[in-house]
Amino acid sequence: MSTDSVRLICKHSARSTMGRTTHAATASLVFPTGTAYPMSRMFFIQYEVRPLPEHESYAEIGGAFANCFVLAVSAGQAEELALRHLAEIHWEVVSVEDPALPTSRSDSSDAEWLEWYDEAARHGDCYVFHQWPNEPQEDDAVH
C-alpha cells in the first residue's frame, strides 16, 4: 500500500471527498474603476514544495508536487498568485518543475485532470498536492 497521497485545495469552500480536502475562499482579480477588464486564461504550473514548520502536517509530509491551475491575465500573474497561495498555506517552493503555461480543457482527457481544471475555471484556482511521507525518498534528504 502506497503512503503517497493527493491533496486537492480549491479556494472556495470546505469539504472532503475521497481522501481529498478542499477549502479556502474565492480569489478575485481587482481592477481600477473605468479600466478595461483583460481576458483571463487558465495557466498550469507545477512546483516541488516542502512544508514549512507552521504547516499542520509538517511532521508527516516530506514534500509534494503541487499542480496549480490558476486563472490569470498573464503567466507572471499566475505565478504570483500561485506562489502567494502556497506561502499562505505554509509550503516552501523547492523548484519549478513546469513553468506557467497556458492550458485549455482540451489538453487532457484524464478525468481527474479535467475535474481539477473545471474547479479552477469555476473558482479561479485549484491546487493539487501529490505528497510523500517525511522519510528519505530515493537519495533525497528529509526536512
Rank of each mutant, 00 (worst) to 15 (best):
R122H: 06
E115W: 00
P99L: 09
D110R: 03
R84Q: 03
R20L: 08
A100P: 10
L29P: 00
N67E: 11
H130F: 14
H90I: 09
S95Q: 13
L114D: 07
N67Q: 05
A72F: 09
D107Q: 15
I61H: 06
F44M: 10
C68E: 05
E135G: 03
A72G: 06
V142R: 13
E119V: 02
Y37Q: 15
S40Y: 08
S16D: 08
I45P: 03
H123G: 02
A100W: 01
A141D: 15
N67C: 00
V6W: 07
E48T: 09
A64V: 10
M39Y: 08
A27Q: 06
H12G: 08
P99V: 13
P133T: 14
P53Q: 12
A24S: 11
L81Y: 02
H143P: 01
W113N: 09
E48F: 01
T35M: 05
V142K: 09
C10M: 04
G63H: 09
E48L: 11
E119F: 07
F129E: 01
G76D: 11
R41I: 03
E56M: 15
N67V: 00
A120F: 02
H55M: 11
A27P: 12
H12L: 07
W113Q: 11
G62T: 10
T22F: 07
I61M: 05
E112W: 02
V93G: 03
V73Y: 00
W91M: 11
G76R: 07
T21L: 13
N67H: 13
H55T: 07
D4Q: 10
R20T: 01
A120S: 05
P38R: 10
L8Q: 07
A14S: 15
R15D: 12
D4S: 10
I61S: 04
D118F: 09
D139R: 14
L71V: 01
A82G: 05
V70C: 07
P51R: 10
H123T: 11
H123R: 05
H90S: 15
G124L: 06
S28F: 04
E48M: 10
T35L: 01
G63T: 04
P32F: 00
D98T: 15
E97S: 15
A66L: 06
L83A: 04
D98A: 12
M39A: 15
A111I: 14
G19A: 01
E60S: 14
E112K: 03
A64Q: 04
L71W: 01
V93S: 08
F44E: 08
R105G: 10
G19T: 05
A141V: 13
A141K: 07
Y37D: 08
Y127W: 06
G19S: 08
Y47I: 03
Y47G: 00
I61E: 07
M39H: 14
C126K: 01
S108Y: 12
E135H: 04
S13W: 11
T3E: 14
P38N: 12
Q137H: 13
T35Y: 03
V6T: 05
D125V: 04
T26F: 06
G124C: 04
H130E: 13
R50F: 02
Y37C: 06
S109I: 09
T103F: 13
V70H: 02
P51F: 12
P136F: 05
C10D: 01
W132F: 14
E92L: 02
F43G: 06
V128R: 02
S57Q: 15
L52P: 01
A64G: 04
A64E: 09
S108D: 11
H143I: 09
D125E: 13
S57A: 14
V30A: 03
